[in-house]
Design a protein around this nucleic acid. Structure first.
Length: 271
DNA sequence: GCGCAGGTAGAGT
DNA sequence: ACTCTACCTGCG
């Protein structure tokens, strides 16, 4: 087990921010995170965080996954003191991190996310994992399912994933898998591209529009310049940034600001 | 019963 | 270039 004291890091906020659909919180306050084929359990009291893994796994993977090497304090300090709304949002979600998730997994996840609610997105993803993902032991007698590899989905009929409740998004996911397997979309190559180039490649995919492309760039490629505009963000922009969001001021970290705003709009009114 | 949920493709002006 | 609409599904 690894114990760390972490600033600007809050597992509950990360969990609720809806960037990882395979992160859950138990009633006892334990977090379960599945990333690709890896699983981690973690918990947090104040700034003290416990991660149930060895040092090698933490240093090699989870530390980067949680974006611990990025200084979020510096990002928060960059916020315009005169922007009361953004300060409120950032204070509310100051423990959010932009997770470094896998491109393929984000591609599928955000294809499924469109015109869908978070509860059902999670269920859809668990469904495809249980049917098409590898079943793995969790090391303590239980099992979990890895995220399906493209090869497991590429041979399916376009409507096959309707059985996993994806609805009309089934064909988007199957076609994406085929494009990866055929090499028409190469995650490795796209991973090496600039934000505009990667975005352009993503937009070629059936079912990927601007919003989904930006979510994939932000969560799957860690392009912090990506600023996904969905219904919540659009509403916030109309209410608080009638003259446009100050992208120039937050150049290269707009995506983090987007998450503060998104999380604030999604969660602050609850409770 | 009906509108909506982290939108997008395709058809129509 | 823009606007309009259909689209799976389940929850309030």
């Amino acid at each position: 087990m690894i114990v760390k004291e972490l600033k600007n890091f809050d597992l509950a906020q990360i969990c609720r921010s809806g960037q990882c659909f395979r992160m859950t919180m138990t009633e006892e306050g334990d977090f379960h995170i599945i990333a690709g084929a890896r699983k981690l359990e973690a918990r947090q009291r104040g700034e003290i965080c416990e991660f149930d893994c060895d040092e090698a796994a933490f240093d090699d993977f989870w530390s980067g996954y949680f974006d611990l090497e990025t200084d979020y304090g510096a990002v928060l300090g960059q916020i315009n003191p005169r922007d009361a709304y953004l300060n409120r949002a950032a204070a509310f979600g100051s423990g959010i991190r932009i997770l470094r998730q896998e491109l393929w997994e984000m591609l599928v996840s955000f294809l499924i996310s469109q015109q869908n609610n978070i509860v059902r997105i999670r269920r859809c993803i668990e469904n495809i994992c249980e049917v098409y993902g590898e079943r793995l032991p969790d090391g303590r007698g239980g099992t979990y399912y890895a995220f399906p590899r493209p090869e497991a989905l590429a041979g399916l009929g376009e409507d096959a994933l309707m059985a996993c409740n994806l609805g009309y998004r089934s064909k988007y996911v199957v076609r994406a898998a085929r494009n990866v397997v055929s090499g028409a979309f190469d995650p490795e190559a796209v991973g090496g591209m600039s934000y505009p180039k990667a975005r352009q490649e993503l937009l070629k995919l059936y079912g990927v529009g601007e919003k989904v492309a930006d979510c994939i760039c932000l969560f799957g490629l860690h392009h912090l310049q990506a600023f996904p505009v969905d219904t919540h963000i659009r509403q916030a922009m109309e209410a608080h940034y009638k003259r446009g969001f100050p992208h120039r001021r937050y150049a290269k970290v707009q995506g983090i600001m987007q998450q503060y705003i998104f999380y604030y709009e999604l969660c602050h009114s609850r409770n």
